[in-house]
């Protein structure tokens, strides 16, 4: 199906450079040129063959290594019972120069909230959007939380974010203690990392050493067993 859509798009919207990414695992997708996204969407919606009448999600993904933010428009046809991922890849930009792409609100009204969320979370600006504001975070929030390099701001409106007295130290120290006391510390799996500066360093080191010791002992035992097995053969 993807190849047909690519053929259709390249014929209908000249210059959109549609390319199909056929995946072996998971879903395939189509990448198009960002400047033509609106034409591509309206072409898909109004085409008699594909009838993509519903916009399901606008989902952004941040790739800092490639310096790219990818915006996925997942569209579906409730008439033909198909779904399709359309990707645009935008340069990541910086604080003053956010990535920009044309809004598709005129094509599907559903895009209004979905694009606002993408702006809120990844800082992608949708041009000609009727109501371009943050949606989940407060209006005066700084930064774009779902970017990979996002750092939580220390203070929000004179309130300290993550005040030290609110951190659940007991829980983390409990797991460290378990690692010291339990007969097999490798079985203890606390979901929290215990290398925070504020936790009792002696305890943390003890726990770390014990886990390393037991692991080494286990490995030595396994190696010995393997060696005897090989000798026996």
């Amino acid at each position: 199906m993807h190849n047909e859509v690519v053929e259709f798009l390249n014929a209908e919207v000249s210059g959109c450079n549609a390319v199909a990414n056929i995946a072996e695992v998971g879903d395939s997708s189509i990448t198009v040129d960002p400047t033509f996204i609106k034409q591509v969407c309206s072409a898909l919606k109004s085409s008699d063959k594909f009838k993509m009448n519903v916009l399901q999600v606008v989902s952004g993904v941040d790739y800092p290594e490639e310096n790219i933010i990818e915006v996925n428009y997942i569209v579906a046809s409730f008439i033909e019972n198909t779904e399709l991922i359309i990707k645009v890849r935008l340069p990541r930009g910086d604080e003053n120069n956010l990535p920009k792409v044309e809004s598709v609100c005129d094509v599907w009204k559903a895009a209004n909230f979905l694009e606002r969320e993408t702006y809120d979370m990844l800082g992608v600006v949708f041009e000609n959007h009727p109501d371009h504001r943050r949606i989940l975070c407060p209006d005066d929030w700084e930064g774009y939380p779902l970017r990979k390099d996002y750092v939580v701001q220390e203070k929000y409106m004179d309130m300290v974010v993550n005040p030290p007295e609110k951190i659940n130290k007991d829980d983390i120290e409990f797991f460290a203690k378990m690692r010291v006391e339990h007969e097999d510390p490798t079985q203890v799996s606390g979901s929290w990392v215990d290398d925070h500066a504020w936790i009792d360093q002696d305890l943390a080191n003890k726990a770390k050493d014990r886990v390393a010791q037991v692991k080494a002992a286990k490995k030595a035992k396994a190696d010995a067993a393997k060696a005897t097995e090989e000798k026996g053969e």
């Binding site: 995946a23 072996e24 879903d27 997942i74 779904e83």
Partner: peptide
């Protein structure tokens, strides 16, 4: 999970 993406409804 192998590299890739999926959309499951």
């Amino acid at each position: 999970v192998p590299k890739g993406e999926i959309y499951m409804r």
